[in-house]
Amino acid sequence: MSKSIRIANLSDLDGVLALYRELRPADPELEGQLAREKWSEIIDSAQMELIVADVEGDLASTCALGINLSIASGARPFGIIEHVVTAERHRRKGLSREVLEYAIDLAWDRGCYKVMLLSGEQLRGAHQLYKSVGFRDGIEKGFVIKP
């Protein structure tokens, strides 16, 4: 089995959209020119990276790393990881762990002083995964507001 963990490129749009449909099936479908424009913005951004696990040409897993600039903590940025998903057919192979580890290493390489991750309160299995790669709960408390 050929596998690579890498930063997404322009040709990965359809694969990432398919993964996001598994993650959030109720979301409106992003298509056509708008999808290509938004994807191009993400790929070209110095503040956003999408990491993918490519298994024999099939995008099997992904996570997004946002690099947030700051003048706190010695003007070091902080990272936020979101949208961690592995296709159902590829689960239980360690791919989520690999994309997360890649994202965390990338955040450290970019000088981040911390990396944060929010997860649905009920996703206990995912929480175990996050703890296994070094995330700890009980240090800070996350809050979310949605329109």
Rank of each mutant, 00 (worst) to 15 (best):
M1P: 14
S2Q: 11
K3F: 02
R6W: 05
S11Q: 12
S11K: 13
G15L: 04
G15S: 04
G15R: 00
G15H: 01
V16T: 02
L17K: 10
L17V: 08
A18G: 04
L19D: 13
L19V: 07
L19H: 04
Y20N: 09
E22W: 01
R24V: 10
P25C: 04
A26T: 04
D27V: 00
P28N: 08
G32S: 12
L34C: 13
L34R: 13
A35L: 05
A35E: 12
A35G: 10
E37I: 05
K38M: 11
W39C: 10
S40E: 14
E41L: 08
I42W: 07
I43Y: 12
S45I: 05
A46R: 11
E49Q: 13
E49V: 03
L50P: 02
I51P: 01
I51V: 15
V52M: 09
V55H: 07
V55W: 05
G57S: 07
G57D: 10
D58T: 11
A60Y: 08
A64S: 09
L65F: 10
G66H: 09
I67W: 02
I67Q: 03
I67S: 07
N68P: 00
L69S: 11
S70M: 06
I71T: 08
A72M: 09
G74L: 02
G74T: 01
A75C: 09
A75R: 02
A75P: 00
R76Y: 03
P77H: 00
F78N: 03
G79V: 01
I80T: 10
I80K: 06
I81Q: 11
E82N: 12
V84Y: 11
V84A: 15
V84G: 09
T86P: 07
T86E: 02
A87R: 09
E88V: 04
R89Q: 14
R89L: 04
H90E: 01
R91K: 11
R91C: 11
R92E: 13
K93V: 02
G94Y: 05
L95D: 06
L95P: 00
S96K: 02
S96P: 05
S96M: 03
R97D: 09
R97S: 14
V99N: 08
L100T: 03
L100K: 08
E101F: 02
Y102V: 06
Y102S: 05
A103F: 10
A103D: 03
A103K: 10
I104K: 05
I104G: 11
I104R: 13
W108H: 13
D109A: 13
Y113R: 00
K114F: 04
V115Y: 08
L117G: 07
L117M: 15
L118C: 13
S119D: 07
S119W: 02
G120K: 04
G120C: 05
L123S: 14
R124N: 10
R124A: 14
G125K: 14
H127G: 11
H127L: 12
Q128S: 14
L129P: 08
Y130T: 11
S132Y: 13
S132F: 12
S132H: 06
G134K: 10
F135A: 01
R136Y: 00
R136C: 07
I139V: 15
E140L: 15
E140T: 08
K141C: 01
F143E: 11
P147G: 14
